[in-house]
């Protein structure tokens, strides 16, 4: 090729166009010619993932700790003592979980513990406030996080009315048993926020969320828009409540009382 000015300009033009195209969308920006991407063959999909927790079957601290252990070990969630801790799913009493305390409650409900986790809200305030789209909503209703992008401003923690989010105040690996890590999943780094991810990485390969799997059927996961799904069946047959419905965030986690 002649190194003429004309060729140079042509090259520049192409490069500029390429740059525009690359930044216009992440459509196969760099990958080799002819490559493409597609869904995993075993993935399970939904229009709106949701969860129903039968608190009669899973309503003690011990039972919920089993779920927490299952979740926290597949996701390498550190066990940090004190108030700078990280939790994806945990147990709390009725008054802490729901903002509609009743006087003279049924003793069994009063003493019951409830599994709390991110609600994957339809109108999620955490998504609304995040300045970098590090927290974002997937089309299937899951509120996901991109830890690579999070700047750790913690606006999402102030925005979440359910206390579902934790910040990595310190190096999380200091509080993990490094010999028993799940090597298929990353840890997090200091300075980012994290929370339950409804096990997106498992759904992509047809697996149920870890807590549901460990719950002996007390936690059921499925598509809320599918009238024949098991979650819908449970919602039809039982009276359920959600956390803080008055705030209009539309939680995707339902509790059978």
């Amino acid at each position: 090729m002649n190194h003429t000015r004309r060729n140079f300009l042509k090259f520049m033009g192409v490069a500029a166009a390429g740059l525009c195209a690359a930044s216009a969308g992440s459509a196969l920006a760099v990958s080799g010619a002819g490559s493409s991407i597609k869904d995993s063959a075993t993935a399970v999909n939904a229009k709106r993932w949701g969860m129903v927790i039968d608190t009669k079957k899973c309503g003690t601290k011990e039972a919920i700790d089993v779920l927490a252990k299952a979740c926290h070990s597949v996701h390498n969630v550190p066990n940090i003592p004190g108030n700078q801790n990280v939790m994806w799913i945990w147990a709390a009493g009725y008054e802490q979980a729901f903002d509609q305390p009743n006087n003279y409650m049924d003793e069994s409900v009063e003493k019951r513990q409830f599994a709390l986790l991110c609600n994957h809200c339809t109108n999620a305030p955490c998504v609304r406030v995040c300045p970098t789209q590090a927290t974002y909503k997937r089309p299937d209703g899951i509120v996901a996080m991109d830890y690579h992008r999070c700047i750790g401003c913690r606006y999402c923690m102030a925005g979440c009315p359910f206390g579902a989010r934790s910040f990595n105040f310190m190096e999380p690996r200091k509080h993990l048993d490094l010999t028993t890590l799940n090597k298929e999943f990353p840890t997090r780094m200091r300075g980012v926020v994290e929370k339950c991810n409804f096990c997106v990485e498992r759904l992509a390969y047809g697996k149920q969320p870890a807590c549901a799997e460990a719950s002996n059927g007390a936690v059921v996961f499925g598509d809320l828009t599918d009238a024949n799904s098991e979650v819908r069946k449970l919602l039809r047959e039982h009276y359920t409540i959600r956390r803080k419905p008055a705030l209009g965030t539309e939680p995707g986690v339902y509790y059978i009382i």
């Binding site: 992440s26 196969l28 920006a29 760099v30 990958s31 080799g32 010619a33 002819g34 490559s35 493409s36 991407i37 597609k38 869904d39 995993s40 063959a41 993935a43 974002y136 997937r138 089309p139 299937d140 996901a144 991109d146 690579h148 997106v200 992509a204 390969y205």
Partner: peptide, 23 residues
């Protein structure tokens, strides 16, 4: 490095987990 960045966005953000290479 760009490939890894793309992989990150495609899997995490677009929910596509499989990459079909040029072959």
């Amino acid at each position: 490095m760009q490939l890894l960045n793309d992989w990150r966005d495609w899997s995490l953000r677009d929910g596509k987990w499989v990459y079909v290479n040029s072959k």
